[in-house]
Amino acid sequence: MTTVNVKKTSYNWRVVDIVVAALIAIAGGVIFWAWDQGAAIISIPLDATYPPLTGIIAGGWMIPAVLGALIIRKPGAALFCETVAAASELIMGSQYGTTVLISGVLQGLGAELIFAAFRYKKFNLPTALLAGAGAGLFCGLNDCFLPWGWNIAYEALDKLTYIIFTTVSGAIIAGALSWLATRGLATTGVLSSFASRKAASEPVFN
């Protein structure tokens, strides 16, 4: 008989953590895929008029990072979820090719650093907003300064504008929405096996 060691520290990932985190990331991919058809209506005119404006909707792609971390509450959740989300985007066909993986890892890292800074103890609204902003900031930096970034050829001021937009968008769309979604999920009882099961009754700011 095979014996399995039962994990002791709560920072270790259980099977349920891994699978739920991965499916959150993938469901995020499905939602964006469905949303994409609608988003094109917004993003094409934005792009055609003043391209840095597209940063406004960038937050949508960073939801898995923040949402995953708010639900799983373990080190690496943001990084893992955003990477899996990027991988599923790659599988479905991405306009960024394999470089989407790098963007995913970096965006996840942006959020991860914030959660780490709070030592994985705080998962309130301000933390969520900051984590979203962190992901958005890293997204903007990646797009503007790394070779594969789509905005690498922009002028400096346009880059700055874009990065501000992605950061704000990350905070609002990825941060606030994920925080709301986590509270909503907690009230449905589906988070009963996670540390976030009481998210709905936790204080907003503390």
Partner: peptide
Amino acid sequence: GVLGDEED
């Protein structure tokens, strides 16, 4: 053997 663990 899939029920709970000490962390919940």
